[in-house]
Structure formats: C-alpha cells, structure tokens
Amino acid sequence: MKTRKMKDNRLSRIILHNVGLGILAFIWLIPIIWLLFTSFSANSEMNTSTFFPKEWSIKYYIKLFQPDTVSQFPQWFINTFVVACATCIISTMFVLMVAYATSIMRFPMRKPLMNMAVILNLFPGMLAMIAVYFVLKTFNLTNSYAGLIMVYSASSGLGYLIAKGFFDTVPRALCEAARIDGCSEARIFFQMVIPMSRPIVVYTVISSFLVPWMDFVYAKMILNAGISSKYTVAIGLYKMLDKMLINDYFTQFCAGGILVSIPISILFMIMQKFYVEGITGGAVKG
C-alpha cells in the first residue's frame, strides 16, 4: 500500500521538487540578475526606482575599454592576470609541497609544524596586515606586483589541509612499494602522487588563481601610490564607488563586475567538479 501511494505522488512530487529548486535558485540569482541588467543601463548612476533599467545600452561596456583617468579596466585586467598567474604557480607549489610532506612522509618535526600551522591560522589576518606592509616596505616591495604576489602566496602553505586530506587517501602501500623499488621521494611525489591527485591539483590551482581577483584589502594597502594604471581589478572597481564618483561610474562598476565574473564563473564551474571530488577523496578514509 505504501509503495502504491508513493507511485501516485511521484510525478507531482518531482514537479514540486524541481519548482522548489527553481524558486530557490531564482532568489539566489536576483542580485546577480540585477547586476547584469544594471550593467546594460544607459544611465551612469544607480537606478533606485525600478528593477529594470529605463533605457538599455551597452555603452558602459564600451566605455570600460576606453580608458580614462579613473577607469583603466583593460590595464587592470592585465595586471590582475599577471599577479594571479604568479600567485597561482607559487601557491599551488607550496600547498602541494606542504601537503605531501605532512601526509605521505614521516619525520620528527611533522606534528609540531602542523600544530604551529593550526595556531597561526587562529590569528586574525587583518591584524598582521600593517606589519606585513612594513616588512614589504623594508624590502622595497610596496607598490610592486612582486610584493603583492608574495603577500598572496608566501603564507599559502598554511592552507594545506584539504590537499593533505586528499593525499591521505593515496594508498600507503603504493608508496611503500615504490620506495622498495628504489624510487626517491621526489620521484614518488612528482610521478606518482601528483598524477593521481588531479582533482585536488586543479582545485588548488583554480582557488589560488582566484585570490587576486577577489582581494581588495591587501591590494589597496600595498598599491598605495594612487597610480590608477597599476591597480588590480578589485581596487579599480572598488574605487569607482567613491562617493564623488559613484554617480558617474556605477553602471561601469556593474559592467566591470560582470566582465570579471564571467571568467571566474567559468573557472568555478570547472572547479566545482574537482572540488567535490577532492573533498570526496579526502573524506573517504574518514
């Protein structure tokens, strides 16, 4: 009797379920939709009276590519891209190196180092910011991309836990066998473990690549010479909302936000698969 009842309800339930999802997704997307629509407005200032723009136009997208003293979007995009690539390479290396050392290898300092990492992660990063600034200044690295890259990647080793969780799932016996065969640790790392860990490598690459696109606090502090052409996308767009500029640049801000979001969204879509796999892998061993 029970099964019959379930069958009767199945179609309507499926529809209900998917409609529910649709409503949720719609709520989630409202602000994004608003961002998208506003970016196609023909007015430069924020529209507070209607949801849809009164007049449609793509002129603020075009303006984004016609740099003026405030908006130099193409330049910002290139700057951010360069910083992101460098950050991505260094961070990925650091994370994977630390994860491998703490997961696969056994050495006496392992536990103390891991405990240190836990403790360091508890300090509010904002607090250390001003000191980081002076450390960079000492090395003459403020207002340089090298400084920015260092800030984004130097401490990335602390975020090794997810990758470690994944490496923990690599069968220990496999590594032992390789060691007995005379493989050096370096070969096990590069030729065995890394190729087996594609999901987590991809996840680490993408998430470290995204850091410079998202951060504005550190970038604002380090690139403090006020030279607009040196900004990253994040500070450039953030400054457009200055109270003196917001009326002239709000729509451009939206358009810029959309243009940045498109590549990031694509990366995220790729990443979600690997992310889920990475987590899955990390959790299997329990």
């Binding site: 600034y133 502090m221 010479a225 030279i227």
Partner: peptide, 23 residues
C-alpha cells in the same frame, strides 16, 4: 612627475598610514 589619485577628503587617512610612502 607621477600623478596619483587621492581625494582631498581622504588624503589624511592615506598619508598618516605611512608618511614616507605618501606623495
């Protein structure tokens, strides 16, 4: 001579963060 952006109303905040790095 390099020209940077810093609005008059926030100049103090930025300058006092690090006088030696200010314009």
């Amino acid at each position: 001579i390099q020209i940077g952006v810093e609005s008059e109303s926030t100049a103090k905040d930025t300058i006092l963060k690090d006088i030696e790095a200010a314009a």
